[in-house]
């Protein structure tokens, strides 16, 4: 029997629960993208937080914490068929226990390690490749990552920019993280607060591009720091794939085309 779930992590864990305590699952699929077939029955699964919590605890205790983290990371990936990869992994995991962490090349383990690793890598990448723009009242960052990494990067920025007010907007999945660290601006030190995951479809028109010149300074810095005789765009593209660049300030064309040569008349200290 195919289980269909609502796309949430709880829903997926509930399916795993039913796989063990009711009918064994042939596959788990998201409700929206499921294509019914004549040969296999399918059944809708309602997310049940209690069952999900029990599976969650079982993974942590009977397999390992690392396995639980990997399953969650794999769940956030956009890889098609991730649910079945997770199901296969857990079926083996509940038999093997914590040894499964070391069985990297097993055909039921390797796919999961691979997609979890892709997500980890993208999370790390976006800790650096995220650009905030100062909107006056808050900082705004937009991104379009391959995987659903918002819940994984939020903690980092909540600690780093604890006293700021910011929004990180995933334009691909229409979600955003909001954080407000400025509720009482007189009080220092700023304590770290909670962040919230919300739905956000379109960017309000009031989000104007930043006007205070730091973007231009950053672009200038970006061009000046590179050494021309070492130019290597292929290497650069390995680190910043072209698909990420539309959200990066330094890859947008400069508005006033500032170059040092055009401003040579500025007062400088010159040595005779």
């Amino acid at each position: 029997m195919d289980y269909l779930y609502d796309g949430s992590f709880d829903g997926l864990l509930t399916c795993i629960y039913y796989h063990y305590y009711q009918e064994a699952a042939d596959g788990i699929y998201a409700r929206e993208s499921y294509q019914p077939s004549l040969l296999v029955e399918s059944g809708l699964v309602c997310s049940n937080p209690d069952y999900a919590a029990r599976v969650y605890k079982a993974i942590e205790e009977k397999i390992s914490e690392a396995a639980l983290a990997r399953v969650y990371y794999a769940f956030l990936s956009s890889c098609p068929g991730k649910e079945n990869i997770i199901l296969n992994y857990l079926r083996l995991g509940f038999r093997m226990g914590s040894k499964i962490d070391f069985y990297h090349s097993h055909p039921q383990v390797h796919p999961l390690h691979k997609i979890a690793c892709q997500v980890t890598r993208e999370v790390h990448r976006f800790l650096g490749l995220l650009r905030f723009a100062d909107q006056g009242k808050f900082l705004y960052a937009s991104l379009a990552p391959d995987h659903d990494i918002l819940p994984l990067i939020a903690d980092h920025f909540a600690e780093r920019l604890a006293g700021e007010r910011w929004v990180i907007h995933d334009q691909k999945r229409n979600g955003a993280i909001v954080y407000d660290g400025q509720t009482s601006p007189e009080k220092k030190p700023y304590p770290q607060r909670r962040w919230y995951l919300i739905d956000l479809d379109t960017v309000p028109a009031s989000f104007l591009p930043e006007e205070d010149g730091y973007q231009e300074l950053w672009k200038l810095y970006f061009t000046e720091i590179s050494i021309n005789s070492r130019r290597n765009p292929r290497l650069q593209a390995q680190f910043i794939p072209h698909r990420y660049r539309q959200h990066l300030v330094e890859f947008q064309a400069s508005r006033n085309g500032f170059r040092l040569a055009e401003n040579a008349a500025l007062p400088l200290i010159r040595r005779e």
């Binding site: 790390h124 650096g128 061009t223 720091i225 590179s226 021309n228 290597n232």
Partner: peptide
């Protein structure tokens, strides 16, 4: 205040020379 440091280090961009 503002900021922290991570022991793994974070790269924020890559210039034209890679």
């Amino acid at each position: 205040g503002i900021g922290n440091a991570k022991s793994f280090g974070i790269c924020h961009s890559w210039s034209d020379d890679g």
